[in-house]
Structure formats: C-alpha cells, structure tokens
Design a protein around this nucleic acid. Structure first.
Lengths: 306, 306
DNA sequence: TCAAAAGTGTTATCCTTACACCCATGT
DNA sequence: ACATGGGTGTAAGGATAACACTTTTGA
C-alpha cells in the first residue's frame, strides 16, 4: 500500500436569506468571488466539521450554526486546468445555514452575495426565466446537435417536455459546463471562451459546490425542518413562505402552504402580532422544535405553483 | 495557509442480492471482516471513482458497475482509538451495486457476506426482530437513564412511540456505538466491552460505512431505479419484490407493489415465462431504461406493510 | 373608503391502502 | 385434486391542488 498524502481543502457555502434574497457568504478579499475555504489539518482539529467552522470564522468573522457535509470532489481533470498544479487534490464541500447577522460597528464587514447572481437561470419566481428559452436552450441545442443523449438531457434538465425539477441545480450547472457556456469551462481549458457567459463565475470549483448546496437545500427542505435555521426566533407565515420560495426559486400556493405548515405542526403562535407589514397585522409564530421527535420526516413537502 | 498533507483512504460497500439475501463484498483475506479499501492516489487515477474501482478489482477480482459516493469520514476521535496512529486521517465511503457473479473455476473466490450478519436488528421481514425489545431496548434504557434527550432518541430511532424508519440505519448504529453496545466502541476505547455484542463487527470504521450504504440504498431505491443494478437482465415481478424487500428489511404488499411498478412504467415484459418457480409460471420482465428520461424521479415509493 | 396584506372554507381529484378472489402449472 | 405461487378488480379513505372570498389594519 503506497502512502500517498494529499492536500485536502474544505469549502463552505454559508447561506442566509433576507427579504426573499438567498445569499452566500464570500471571503473578505474581493478580488474574486470565493467561498470561505481552508485546509483540513487533523492535528489542529479533531473533526472536519470543527475545521470548517474555524476556517469560516477565520476568514469572515462569522460563526456558523447548522453545518452539513455535501460532497467530496476529487477530480482535477474536470474543474481544473489539465496542467493544474494547484493547491488541492481534493475538496470537501459543506453547506451551512445562518441568520444574517446585524452589522456590528467595529467588526469586519461580512460580505454576502445573492446566490442567483451566480445562477440566474435558477430563479423561476415570476415565471420561467426568459433567458432559458431565449439564450440557454438555443445554445444548448447547437451543442447537442443530433446526439440524442445530449438533447434528451437538455430537455430533461431544463423542463422542455417535462416539468422543471428545481432540485437538479448541480446537473444543470454541469451540463452548461460541458457545453462550454460558463466561464469556468473556458478557464479550465475545456472550451472556447463563450460569447455570452451565464451567471457570475467563482474561484476554482466553488460554483460547483454552491450548485450542490442549492440542490441539497432545495431537496432537504421538503423532508427536514431546515428552513428554520434561516428564520429569526419569531416570524410571520408569510415571511416563512417567502423564505421557502426564495430557496426553491418558485412561488407557492398560499393556502396550501399554510395548511401544510399547520397540519405538520411545525410552528406554534407566539401570541404576538406584527403590525409592520403594511396591511392587516400578522400573527407571529415560532418553530416547534418538538416535531423532530414526533414525526419521522417533518418538512415542507410543497408541490404546486401559486 | 499551511500545507498539511494527509492520507486519504477509499472504502467501498459493494452490494449484491441473491435469493432475498443482500450481501457485501469482503476482502479476500479472512482475518477480519473488512471492506475493499485503498489509498487515493491522484497521480495514478484521475478521479476518486476510478481509484475505487481499481482498488476493488485489485483486492477481490470483481469489477463493479454502479458506483456512488456516500460520505467522507474524517474524525479520528470517534471510530478510532484516542491514541490511534492508524493509516488514514480521512476515508471516503462509496456504495457500489453489482450482480452476484457466477463462480468461475480458476478465478479467486469472491467472498460476500450477508449484510444482516452485521446488522441483525435491521431485518424486520418476519416481523419486528425480537432482539430489539428483548435485549437492545432494555440496554439502551439503562444507558439513557433519565436523560430525556437520550431516551427520546432511543424511542425515535427504534420505533417505540412512532414508526420504525428503516432508512435510519446509520443513526441507529451510531446510537448503539455511543451506548457502548457494539464491539467497535470497546475496541476504540470508548466503552467497556459489552456483555452481549450486537452483530458481527468489522475492521476500522467499515461497519459505519456499511450502515451509511444501507441507509442510502434504502432511501434512494424509492426515488431512483437503482434496484435494477442488482437484478439480472430478465426477472419476475416476485424476484424484484423480494430484492426490494431484502434491502428494505420489510415485507411489502404484493398487489400494491405490482401496481406501482406497472404504473411507473419501470418494466416491460420480455414475452418469456419462467416455469421454474414451482407454481404457476411467472412472466419475465426487463427494466425499461427509458424511464430515466421520461419521469423526473422514477423509483419504488413503496409504503405499507404486506 | 380604499389599498394592502392576512387569513379562511370548500370541492374535485388523485393517490394510497387494504380488502379477497381467480388462474395456471407440476406432482 | 391439490398444493404452490402468479396474477387481478375494486372500494374506502386520505392527501393534494385548485378554486374565491372575508377580515383587519394604515393611510
């Protein structure tokens, strides 16, 4: 057994949602859009999770709550130059959820960027993004030509004959990468620089990690009460719905959403009301932590459009 | 940024199902029950997946088809002695699915072991395993004492007030580990050697990886047509049901299972019939690979008992 | 009194679950 | 003929999806 030792990088997609805008935490250095990252040093930290937390705090000043491992990427050939002698042979991606912190005087600016700036085609609130039919699909058709496996994949992932599956964020990104329509593909030497780049690119394979995070969060939300990690202690049902919609990238049916939340007994009224909403004041609710023990898979299995 | 380099091990849980027995591939050396494993060497293999395939073939002579990454374990403090200077600081677990190969004269014996020998409490075909109520729960109660968080976890995971959730294989194993009821806990120096050890133990953290694999397969089966990776080209519907039941560890309702398979258009008749079943001959079916493109999440969303 | 947002009641439809029975073959 | 396993029809109940309307506040 050879004893090859390699460098392992840890990357975290730290997300917060404010006023219907899901955002990701960026490193303080604004030269390129990059996720907080750090090496895994088993001597310094007993677990990888501790290491991730430390890296994030180090680089951004933020200390995170909920953390979950996403995936371990190890292929240099894909999201890296063929001749890359870059820092990592492997990177482990993490998803973290947090409430957006109040800006503190004296503390360093915590920089978040809306996640749809990196994935504009993933936001279908307000209808199917026009860019999909206007620019993405034409270019993907040109790429797939008459290779049926390709065009079937395109149609499947961008909801042509079927429904648009909002969880397949990673698959769509990888398709665009293969088709050479995102800047990373050109940067990695896999394609010509495209005439029109789709979305803002990120450092290394960070956008791929963010895509993984988005897909996972969109999926997990439906069977685990993770949204509440993003909510303040007390919130209105409309706030909650807007947060879910922001993540899912689609609108939901108000009454059905409410019934769902109610029958799943995910929340309970605090008794307080919020008069700042503009119209009729809204009742405030809090998350019922007990559901975790009562039901096997408590989540928001929303389905339809609103 | 420090440049800590560490050794990364890859482990694969290669599973096959024959006649209602799900089994895992073991290394040829029978000194301890161990999963095929190998180091990840980025210079030898471009991707980790290639590396896993190579390791498995190397150590067992079997070449595998479907492979999927499970999780990356990095905590030495948990499934390792506190003073462990063992080989890996990190291990990436994989799930692979294969058909059980015909025994070839001349080729090395491929050794599989039934997975329920390692997890006897996970097989609820034939009713709830008596050992759960007779030995596991009493011991877990003693462990949890009057710490409510513990006893709630116990009740939740072993289906006391609620339903037994067959997907939570890893969570149950980790609970038993924490409670010191599996041999690994004693071996890692985390508990006294238990009077009764539950299930057969495995090398290093391999049983944890197998638990992850079982949970993932049980879950994934419901929304992706992965069972067919375990089936021969042609099979009867009863064969298919038995395979699913073997993995899920519970019996299913025959008619509902059949309707499910039929309405999901997962299979098509080959036209052949199998007369070797004993009673009325059964029609043979094959997997319809096209479903992958037609439906968003084709799987076997079975639910009830039979 | 009007705009804005909160909050509810009700029905048609589909899916899930469970029931019990008939069919084709080998011995 | 009978044992063995293969194969079906159908009805009750519950969850889902969609409909439009009422209520309470601030301006």
């Amino acid at each position: 057994m050879t004893k090859t030792r390699i460098e392992v990088g840890l990357n975290a997609a730290v997300v917060a949602v404010t006023d219907g805008v899901p955002s990701v935490l960026m490193t303080a250095t604004p030269e390129a859009d990059a996720l907080p990252a750090g090496p895994f040093d088993p001597l310094a930290h007993r677990t990888m999770e501790q290491s991730v937390r430390a890296s994030v705090t180090d680089q951004t000043g933020l200390s995170i709550g909920y953390v979950e491992q996403l995936y371990t990427f190890g292929d240099r050939g894909r999201h890296a130059r063929p001749d890359d002698q870059g820092p990592h042979a492997m990177s482990v991606g993490y998803l973290a959820l947090t409430r957006l912190p109040e800006r503190q005087a004296g503390s360093p600016a915590v920089r978040f960027r809306p996640w749809y700036t990196f994935f504009p085609w993933e936001d279908a609130r307000g209808g199917r993004p026009p860019a999909i039919d206007a620019v993405i699909l034409p270019r993907l058709s040109a790429w797939s030509g008459d290779v049926t496996s390709r065009s079937e994949r395109v149609r499947h992932l961008f909801g042509v004959g079927s429904a648009f599956d909002e969880e397949k964020v990673l698959e769509r990104y990888e398709l665009l990468y293969e088709a050479g329509l995102v800047e990373e593909a050109a940067r990695d030497g896999r394609a010509e620089r495209p005439e029109i780049v789709l979305g803002v690119s990120m450092r290394f394979d960070h956008r791929r990690i963010l895509a993984t995070a988005m897909g996972r969060l969109r999926a997990k939300m439906k069977y685990r009460p993770v949204v509440f990690e993003l909510m303040p202690e007390a919130f209105t049902l409309t706030d909650l719905q807007h947060t879910v919609e922001a993540i899912a990238g689609q609108h939901l049916h108000k009454q059905n959403f409410r019934r769902l939340v109610e029958t799943a007994r995910l929340v309970e009224p605090t008794g307080e009301i919020d008069t700042s909403t503009g119209g009729r004041p809204a009742a405030l609710f809090r998350f019922r932590r007990e559901v975790t023990r009562e039901r096997p898979a408590p989540g928001l299995r929303f389905a339809g459009r609103g």
